[in-house]
């Protein structure tokens, strides 16, 4: 099913209703509305399927680790992303030569969301559930109540980083460029009236 293009003002109002702090900062929409992938997949530079730890009883989601236990903890996500070349890191600011991802979690340690740092350090890329990809300047603008159960992201709990070389080997840059290129053409086609 093709991605859905919502009018910019509708999409912005909708996204800001979930993350009120975004209304105070600059942020931009980077993709159409798409239910085919979500934040973890996008943090791993993938747009073809949803990623989440699973015990393989439903195959509702994909997880690179074949783990019989659903490990939704920060260590579980850190372990999985180590397969993509990421290591734990203390700094969340942009460092030349490194790509970073941030893990959001609730007070009980349950991971809720991941954001990936823009390749050139322009901010953080997030794919909130099935909504549009967004580029937000800081990690705090989409944080929520860490004591929430189902309706918030909690706080940033862990930063991971990998070298640009690892990102290149993982074809992350290529995939992101292709994704941006598709979005550009979709937008253009929409303006011209083809879509």
């Amino acid at each position: 099913m093709p991605p859905q293009f919502r009018p910019s003002n509708v999409a912005r109002a909708n996204i800001e209703s979930y993350f009120p702090a975004l209304s105070n900062v600059n942020w931009i929409i980077k993709s159409p509305y798409d239910v085919d992938y979500q934040c973890i997949a996008w943090a791993a530079c993938r747009t073809d399927r949803k990623w989440w730890p699973t015990d393989n009883t439903t195959f509702e989601v994909y997880w690179p680790f074949d783990d019989p236990i659903v490990d939704e903890s920060i260590s579980g996500f850190t372990k999985a992303f180590s397969l993509l070349g990421y290591k734990s890191c203390d700094r969340r600011d942009f460092e030349i030569g490194y790509q970073k991802v941030a893990i959001y979690a609730l007070n009980n340690g349950q991971v809720t969301h991941m954001a990936r740092q823009h390749f050139c350090g322009r901010g953080w890329l997030s794919k909130p559930g099935e909504l549009e990809d967004i580029l937000h300047r800081d990690l705090e603008s989409i944080e929520g109540d860490p004591a929430a159960t189902w309706n918030g992201y909690g706080k940033v709990a862990q930063i991971l980083k990998r070298s640009w070389l690892a990102a290149l080997f993982n074809r992350c840059l290529l995939r992101c460029l292709w994704h941006a290129f598709k979005f550009f053409w979709y937008r253009l086609a929409q303006k011209v009236g083809f879509v």
């Binding site: 979930y18 949803k50 989440w52 939704e72 991971v111 809720t112 969301h113 559930g129």
Partner: peptide
């Protein structure tokens, strides 16, 4: 209410 949530558990 859960459009922004990625976690199937949540």
């Amino acid at each position: 209410e859960t459009a922004h949530i990625s976690s199937p558990t949540q």
